[in-house]
Design a protein around this nucleic acid. Structure first.
Lengths: 180, 180
DNA sequence: GCTACCTATGCAACAAGGTGCACTGCAACC
DNA sequence: GGTTGCAGTGCACCTTGTTGCATAGGTAGC
């Protein structure tokens, strides 16, 4: 499993509370590895028991107390171990593809509309990534180390979203031709 | 969930046993929606209870008896319902991206080797898809209906694998430049 | 004669992920 | 004065997915 490792990477970049981590998983890191706040709280608890992260209770006024997490020595060791270990290539899990494949068993026009909706969604996501790219990485050629690694992951997101947009366009065009 | 629906689509194309379905999920359909034989047996059982599929016990000589499944009226109705229903865009879950993002916390060279391994894997997969494309769909322009839909899903697979190969190349090149 | 793999189905247990809900209290808006 | 939203943590339950094992005869190679 990699949720622990995604959390470790995120905590290493910046320590914080579970709530804060959940926020990060709603953007940045979470674009490539989604997780709900439930999963994060539960996993953090387990990671404390494993001594991968250290907790510190922080009392607050006007707000509920929070727990501040930071990566511990055990977590760093685990990260190093995991980074060196080979991992399985992820397999695709695209509900939309199943729908396209089964389109002729239902309303093709409805499936086409679904594809259009997904295209719009991925186009929006692509715009978000492009803005981040422009703002945070104006000069990619000069990047090194951590900054370069963050940029490369963003590039992966851009490629993935662009690929989806193009595929949706191809499907829309082909289904349109077939129906007319 | 879409495993039921993937099974329905597959059974509609061709009825068969759970074992046979598991085989299909190891190739064709399974390239876009993976499932183990355990999942398939369990899901088929549930689908029989729901009257989405019909079973027929087939006695065999020299081999264990098998159960032959075909889609039932309830399954066709469910498929139509599901096809018309909007679905959530799938979110990425790429362990490799987490590793690239965390590369500086471990052995960058090891992560680079991982990326190379994954590139090779996706390149092989891409080759498989390209062969299928050439053999099964020699004249895409003339496709209609079900054949066209199958082709479009294959095109999605080709785009996804090609995108991964290109991203891996970009990462390898950038990490190589950074290290030297 | 032994090992290994294929066909064929399935249980049991566990790990991971998702959904719904509960509690607290402040700030902002209308 | 009521709703909405933010900050903050967590339990309980349910569904999905994975792993290990069991059964059992046939076929093929060494």
């Amino acid at each position: 499993m990699a949720l622990e490792h995604a959390i470790l990477v995120s905590l290493e970049e910046r320590p914080g509370s579970g709530y804060e981590l959940a926020g990060r998983f709603d953007k940045s890191i979470g674009y490539f590895w989604a997780a709900s706040h439930q999963q994060i709280y539960r996993t953090l608890k387990r990671m404390v028991e494993l001594d991968w992260v250290a907790v510190e209770h922080v009392a607050q006024q006007g707000r509920p107390d929070k727990k501040h997490y930071r990566i511990a020595a055990g977590g760093r060791a685990e990260l190093r171990r995991w980074l060196a270990e080979p991992s399985e290539p992820a397999h695709l899990r695209e509900e939309l593809a199943v729908k396209v494949r089964g389109a002729s068993l239902g309303d093709v026009a409805a499936v086409r509309a679904e594809v259009a909706r997904h295209r719009d969604h991925h186009a929006e996501r692509l715009d978000v990534y492009r803005v981040i790219e422009k703002n945070d990485f104006p000069d990619p050629g000069s990047l090194h180390g951590r900054g370069l690694h963050q940029y490369l992951v963003l590039r992966g997101g851009i490629r993935a979203e662009q690929g989806m947009v193009e595929w949706c366009e191809e499907v829309l065009e082909a289904l349109g031709r077939d129906q007319s």
